Amino acid sequence: MRNWLVLLCPCVLGAALHLWLRLRSAPPARAPGAGAADSQAFFHQWKSSHYDVVVGVLSARSNRELRDAIRNTWLKHSLRHPALSQRVLVKFIIGARGCDVPVEDREDPYSCRLLNISNPVLNQEIEAFSLSEEGSSGLSEARVVSVSFRVLHPIVITSLGVFYEASDEGFQRNITVKLYQAEQEEALFTARFSPPSCGVQVNKLWYKPVEQFILPESFEGTVVWESQDLHGLVSGNLHRVTVHDGGGVLRVITAGEGALPHEFMEGVEGVAGGFIYTIQEGDALLRSLHSRPQRLADHIRSLHEEDALLTEESSVHGDIVFVDVVDTYRNVPAKLLNFYRWTVETTSFSLLLKTDDDCYIDLEAVFKRISQKNLDGPNVWWGK
């Protein structure tokens, strides 16, 4: 995960992946007295049989203005420079396919996953989880259990709850339930269950009310159940628990998806209770669902127009590499990997530099820094 964060760091002027494709001798040392401002001295160190630096510029399909700004500034300078023009190759990295889901109908604006809401359960309270007789396995050994979820349409959580042991007479446990927002250390709200204060029993859960406020669309949270006794919790794994998503307004996130940082998960992944919630802004949701078919049709037409414009742009400038991915922010790692593969398979080069289409690259300064850092060994990674 951390490697991807390095790859995605915006405006990495000096992020260079030193991929040596064949053995080469060390570059000659600089002549004594050569000035740092003499850029030509640095270019003479590099082979003329292949590109010294390949620059990959991450760009979204719709960012034509940013690409043209680069073409009219530092890229134009490199093409007209007597040394840079022969030693640098610049390519824009663009996904070959646009997302066929309008932004309004995606789970989040950074992915291409359809917001799959249908028949929302409006104007009533909904229990998020239930544990069937077959799914119940009694007390587990885990004393801390957690589950993460994403809100796809605004909801209000009214109560937090815990499962109880069917053989118990009344409530005989001490359990704390907390709801956290993703990557926040302080709980949004907490419910504490004990024999003298166990809340209200509904079906197979004990519930206690919590402070109510709206959890907005794209909210990501984690519910954590923690036993204050020496006993484990009554819990079930996610495959043995029924999730009531209200018609698609929330979705459970598993650790296997990699959607949340691993260190944010607490205890064992599973469910040891639940929560009660209501769906907000129901009228607006129904209107959006009603207008979705026309919105999808309009979006598909705009994608065809975008494809035609990109084809023309590529034909005119010849500086675009279309990689075989859907062009969304969450696919940036895949865009980079595909571009690296294209570069290795089609280009002879010494250094690979990745940047973004909102960055200005001073290529002469890059060559000077390469010389100063002596980046002439294999497997060099350079950046900040």
Rank of each mutant, 00 (worst) to 15 (best):
C9V: 02
V12A: 05
L13F: 01
G14T: 06
A16S: 10
L21R: 11
R22D: 13
L23Q: 12
L23Y: 10
A26L: 14
P27S: 00
P28K: 04
A31P: 01
A31I: 02
P32Q: 01
P32K: 04
D38S: 05
D38L: 01
F43I: 05
H44M: 08
K47M: 15
S49Q: 13
V54P: 01
S62L: 02
N63D: 13
R64N: 12
L66M: 13
S78G: 00
L79Q: 15
R87K: 15
V90T: 04
V90K: 00
K91M: 12
F92Y: 07
I94M: 07
R97W: 03
D100M: 04
P102H: 08
D108R: 08
L114A: 15
L115T: 11
N116H: 05
I117P: 03
L122N: 06
N123L: 06
N123K: 09
Q124T: 15
E134D: 12
S136D: 14
V144E: 13
F149D: 01
R150S: 09
P154C: 10
P154M: 00
P154R: 07
T158I: 06
T158N: 01
Y164A: 09
V177R: 03
L179I: 12
A187P: 09
L188E: 10
S197W: 09
F213N: 08
I214Y: 01
L215M: 14
P216T: 12
F219S: 13
F219E: 00
L230V: 15
S235H: 14
S235F: 04
G236M: 07
N237S: 09
L238D: 00
L238S: 11
H239E: 05
H262T: 13
H262S: 10
V268D: 04
E269N: 07
F275R: 02
I276V: 11
Y277T: 04
L285S: 10
L285P: 00
R287N: 12
S288I: 06
H290E: 15
S291P: 02
R292D: 10
A297M: 09
H299N: 06
I300G: 05
R301S: 11
H304T: 13
A308W: 03
E313P: 06
S314I: 08
G318M: 12
D319P: 11
D319T: 14
D319Y: 03
V326M: 08
T328N: 01
Y329P: 01
R330I: 15
V332L: 15
A334I: 02
L336E: 09
L336A: 00
L337T: 08
L337G: 04
Y340M: 14
T343F: 10
T343Q: 07
E345C: 11
T346Q: 07
S348G: 14
S348T: 10
L353H: 03
K354G: 05
D356K: 01
D358E: 12
Y360R: 10
V366G: 06
R369Q: 13
D376Y: 15
D376N: 09
G377F: 05
W381P: 08
W382M: 03
